[in-house]
């Protein structure tokens, strides 16, 4: 069953620039989709339509049968989005307050919020930081906090925009592990990156964008050999004709 259907989606910015054009994408529940493309190819613009931060100029985005523009709040609850810049995503004064921000907006009861906060913090391994101030966290911890903030809203789809930017090797592995365990727990994952090396070994599907359009869509091994035409570096292993390994081992 398709949990996400994007049909003929076009977005034009208010200054007239074309953001994305005529995008069609169907995502089944539980899929792990990597969206790649060079800088400015429209990845972020596409993702922002999934939870109604941008509304389409033309076309529709349908989440589990209901269009995003029809019920934006539902879309925001269903699609948890972890932004490119984790710092600007932090709203709260302490780690646990930040995680509680989303559930509070949903008007949940206090005990329910507490339950969700501790569950989300445990899921990302930040439980011992609950009363810390977010500014003192490291880059990787901030990103995990952003993930916890999103998890506390019980989303079905998780969207990660460049989750590995600015992270060191252990940081990347930590976040990757996190993403994989969320995928295993049944979340549908969409992830953008221009560095396929780190994640492609785990994905079921690869989508390549260029100039606001989807130019390739298929399984990683079908497509990975010609990504370089579109300004994305082909992972080393696949250049050498080997299977892409995991960064986790």
């Amino acid at each position: 069953m398709n949990i996400l259907e994007i049909i003929n989606l076009t977005h034009r910015f208010s200054n007239g620039a074309m953001g994305i054009e005529n995008i069609n994408l169907m995502v089944r529940e539980g899929e792990f989709v990597v969206i790649s493309g060079q800088n400015g190819s429209g990845k972020t613009t596409l993702l922002r339509h999934l939870n109604g931060l941008f509304l389409p100029t033309a076309g529709t985005v349908i989440l589990d049968g209901i269009s995003v523009s029809e019920n934006v709040v539902r879309a925001r609850q269903m699609v948890g989005m972890v932004f490119q810049d984790a710092d600007s995503q932090i709203v709260g004064e302490t780690v646990s307050e930040d995680v509680a921000f989303g559930p509070e907006n949903l008007c949940l009861s206090r005990p329910e919020i507490k339950k969700r906060v501790s569950h989300a913090l445990n899921a990302v391994g930040l439980a011992s930081f609950a009363d810390q101030r977010p500014h003192v966290l490291s880059g990787g911890e901030k990103r995990r906090l952003a993930i916890a903030g999103v998890l506390a809203m019980n989303p079905k789809i998780l969207v990660f925009d460049e989750p590995f930017s600015n992270l060191d090797y252990p940081g990347v592995r930590q976040i990757l592990k996190q993403i994989l365990s969320l995928h295993e727990a049944g979340h549908t994952i969409l992830l953008t990156t221009h560095d396929l090396e780190k994640v492609l070994g785990h994905a079921n599907r690869l989508v390549i964008m260029k100039d606001g359009k989807i130019v390739r869509d298929g399984t990683p091994d079908q497509i990975v050999t010609d990504v370089e035409t579109y300004g994305v570096r082909q992972p080393c292993a696949s250049r050498l004709g080997m299977e892409i390994g995991s960064w986790l081992n």
Binding site: N51, R76, D85, F101, E104, N105, C107, R110
Partner: peptide, 23 residues
Amino acid sequence: EDADKLIVAMEARCYSENRTDPE
């Protein structure tokens, strides 16, 4: 710019004035 990003982040997490009351 930061304020702008923060607004988007708050919106993405369903910000509304009608929220759970503080304890």
